[in-house]
Simulated scan of single mutants.
Amino acid sequence: MVTRNRARPTFRLRAGASLVCVSVLIGGCSVSENPYESQTVRGDEAVELIDSMRPGGSYEDARRRINDAAATIAERIVGAVPGQTWQFSPDPNVQQVKSDGLPCDKLTGDIARRPLSDMVEFGRPFTSEEFATASDIVRDEAAEFGADGEDSLFNEQSRRDFHVQGGGFEFDLRQGGSAILTITGDCFLMQSVIDSPAGQLPADPPTEPSTR
Rank of each mutant, 00 (worst) to 15 (best):
V20D: 13
S23C: 04
G16W: 05
S38Q: 15
L13N: 04
T40A: 14
R12P: 02
T10D: 11
C21L: 08
S30H: 07
L19E: 08
L19P: 01
G16V: 06
G27R: 07
S18M: 12
C29L: 01
T10V: 15
A15W: 01
V24K: 09
G16P: 02
V31P: 00
S38W: 07
S38C: 01
L19G: 14
Y36L: 09
L19I: 01
G16S: 11
L25N: 07
V22I: 13
C29F: 00
I26F: 00
E33N: 13
L13F: 05
L13V: 04
A17E: 15
I26V: 15
I26D: 02
G16R: 09
V24N: 11
S23Q: 05
L19R: 02
L13S: 03
S30F: 12
E33D: 13
R12G: 03
T10Q: 14
T40K: 07
G28P: 03
L13D: 04
A15G: 06
T40M: 12
C21G: 10
L25D: 09
L25S: 08
T10E: 15
T10R: 12
C21S: 13
G16Q: 09
G28A: 12
C29K: 00
S38G: 04
S30A: 13
V24R: 06
S38M: 07
T10L: 15
P35W: 07
I26Q: 01
R12N: 13
F11S: 07
Y36I: 03
G27W: 03
L19H: 04
S23T: 03
E37N: 10
S38V: 13
N34F: 03
V20S: 10
S18A: 12
N34E: 12
R12E: 14
Y36M: 11
R14G: 14
R14I: 05
G28V: 06
S38I: 08
L13Q: 03
A15L: 11
A15N: 09
S18F: 09
A17Y: 09
S18I: 15
C21Q: 14
P35N: 10
C29V: 02
S23E: 05
L13G: 02
G16K: 11
T10H: 10
T40V: 15
T10F: 10
G27K: 07
V20F: 11
G28L: 04
S23P: 00
N34H: 08
V24D: 14
C21D: 11
C21T: 14
V20K: 04
G28S: 09
V24I: 10
G16M: 11
F11A: 10
S32C: 02
V22N: 01
G28W: 02
F11P: 00
P35S: 08
P35L: 12
G27E: 02
R12S: 13
A15S: 13
N34G: 03
L19V: 05
F11L: 14
